[in-house]
Amino acid sequence: MLTKRIIPCLDVKGGRVVKGVKFKSHRDAGDPVELAAFYNEQGADELVFYDITASSDERPIMLDVVKRTANQIFIPLTVGGGLRTVEDMHRMLEAGADKVSINTAAVLRPELISEGAKRFGNQCIVLGMDAKRVTGSDPVRWEVYTHTGADGGQTSGIDAIKWACRAVDLGAGEIVVNSIDADGTKAGYDLELLRAISECVTVPVVASGGAGSPEDLYQALIVGKADAVLAASIFHYGTYTILETKKYLSGKGIPVRF
């Protein structure tokens, strides 16, 4: 049986992990390669690096981080943030990433998804969607946001569910659903949004934004029907280890890899 994936996400800027990371061990918590190795030892099923560098001048630093990680760690690696062209994708994949995640650039120019999928295969192209509930909408609906790296971003006015379906038609092989409303709250994923997208697309869906406990991950997998869960804070702050999380999920009947 295909196991559910647990994926820690690392925000990287200028070659360092920037979200506050507090481990009980004495590792250099800011070095992405060390952290990647640490999570790998803990049983992470994949890793995501999110490049929050604003300027493309610093892109070579990210490429170096990806390269050094890929030399050491033999689990799948996704890189997202600021990728605008097929050439940008190519450089990341060549450095050792297995998948590239795109958001803003795909909204601005949806053909980027099909161009990337045609050149590298659908399995390489992840749509990393940032979605936010439309205040007062009834029935509830969500809109896709772009430029979320800066000040919360801006709405594109595009319906999140429709966009997810379109992205799959264009060739996206996986969708990361990041709820802007839930992000950072540790109050749980946006289960309604997750479920709506999981039920309408044929590709794997990854839950993102809002994880505060292993129970939240469980809810995302069962109620939200997600195929994988991404989390940052709960792992970075050492609130729960990946192993503890997997044991919890396994105890509730979710197939996980140990």
């Binding site: 049986m1 295909l2 196991t3 994936r5 659908n122 996986e174 794997p204 195929d227 994988a228």
Partner: peptide
């Protein structure tokens, strides 16, 4: 077969 998420992506036995 259809009915499952494709690609088959992840860790399996």
């Amino acid at each position: 077969p259809s009915g499952l998420k494709v690609p088959h992506m992840g860790w399996n036995q």
